[in-house]
Amino acid sequence: MDRIPILKLGGALIVTIQVDMHDRLALALEEDLTAMIARTGARGVLIEISALEIVDSFIGRMLVSIAAVSRVLDAETVVAGMRPAVAITLVELGLELTGIKTALNVERGMSLIQARLAEEEDGHGSDRDHHEG
């Protein structure tokens, strides 16, 4: 069974979906991604779906659940490059993917994740300062 490759780039994981998603593929992706986040300690997950033309409620729900699982493991999910038709379909299905960050393309998605990583670094820094002071 084919699987969707997951790439690690710095503190982020990148998934680009280039094939039509079917249900088993989506389930496998959720499993792989969860395992990968746990193994690498990634803080951000970027899912690029500009090649995805067809979504149904199941795929929409998978995206939401991937995001929820990632959040539990302290990684933030960004969905990038959604096509207009897909966005309309998801809204009509009532799946507004609340809690997931979205970006127009990979570049902007990465900068969202980097911004979070940088912010956390600052946050840790100030924490340490606080302890020392």
Binding site: V79, G81, V91, T102, N105
Partner: peptide, 9 residues
Amino acid sequence: VAAARLMGA
């Protein structure tokens, strides 16, 4: 608005 947000705007 929701659809635009999904696209990242």
